[in-house]
Amino acid sequence: MGKNKFVIWTLIIIIVVGGYFGYTKFIQTPEMQNGGTTIDTSASSPKPEPPKSDSNTKDNSNTVNNVSVSEITRDMQGQYVTTSGTITTISGGKGHTFITLKDINNDKTIKGVLFRQENEENTGRKELLEQNAKTDNIVNIEGKVDIYENELEIIIKKVY
């Protein structure tokens, strides 16, 4: 019985030691495998910064600019904006909702579109547009500036 215990313990030790060395070799960095040492700098190393947006790019989707309707220009295509105004016209087709938003300070207008899919994902926006169109209340709209058929428009994402 003594010889069998010795063989079993020897096998257990070989498995444990082999597993340990196999594991440590698996997690070693290339510097460690070549006999070099590494220093853990993760606590002191700076975190990577997000890419800086170039003001000349068309898609500044990380930023929402608060602007009046009259300040929206073709150069802002692809940018997200928040603007306010009164809804002068509202219509629909194929489930989409189309509005004309008038600046609260002058007669400047911009078209807006709420696509059917957007409304289905977050219901209530179409109803809010319809309510504000009937009452001439000021409505806030957040969306992406676009050009469609050579005219500025806002693809509506939020209404409040």
Rank of each mutant, 00 (worst) to 15 (best):
G143P: 07
T41L: 07
D54A: 11
S91G: 12
I156W: 13
N132F: 00
I87T: 03
N62I: 04
I110V: 01
T41K: 09
T41W: 10
G36P: 08
P51E: 02
N56I: 07
A43T: 07
K47I: 10
I147D: 03
G124A: 05
T37A: 06
N132D: 01
N150Q: 09
M76G: 02
G92C: 00
I155M: 04
D146L: 08
D103A: 10
I155E: 09
K94R: 04
I141S: 02
D54C: 05
I154A: 03
N60K: 06
A43I: 06
S44I: 15
Q77P: 02
G85Y: 04
N65C: 08
E142P: 13
R125N: 11
I147C: 08
S55K: 03
S70T: 12
G143W: 01
I27C: 02
K25S: 12
E151T: 05
L152T: 04
Q28S: 14
K52V: 08
F115D: 14
K47Q: 09
G85A: 11
I27K: 04
T89Q: 07
N34F: 10
F98T: 00
D136W: 02
F115P: 05
I27V: 10
D146K: 09
F98E: 00
E71M: 13
I104Y: 03
E149P: 08
N150T: 09
I90F: 00
V139S: 15
S45A: 12
Y148V: 09
A133C: 14
I99A: 01
G36F: 14
V67P: 03
I110A: 00
L114E: 00
S44Y: 12
R74N: 08
G112K: 00
E118N: 12
F98P: 00
T100W: 07
V64R: 14
S42F: 15
N122V: 14
G93F: 11
T109N: 01
V145L: 08
L114A: 00
P50M: 08
V145W: 07
I39M: 02
N56G: 12
N62Y: 10
P46G: 09
E142M: 15
P46N: 10
M32S: 04
V145Q: 08
L128D: 05
I138D: 03
S84T: 11
S42G: 11
N62P: 02
N140W: 14
H96N: 09
N140D: 11
S61R: 12
N34I: 05
I156T: 05
T37P: 06
G36N: 15
Y148H: 15
K108W: 15
P30M: 04
L129Q: 06
V145N: 12
E71C: 07
K94F: 02
Y23Q: 01
S44D: 09
K58P: 09
F115V: 06
V145C: 10
T89R: 04
T86D: 02
N65L: 13
T29A: 07
A133T: 11
T97W: 05
I138Y: 04
K126T: 15
Y80I: 02
N65S: 15
D75S: 11
E151F: 02
I72S: 08
F26D: 11
D40G: 15
S53Y: 12
T109F: 02
L128R: 07
K52Y: 06
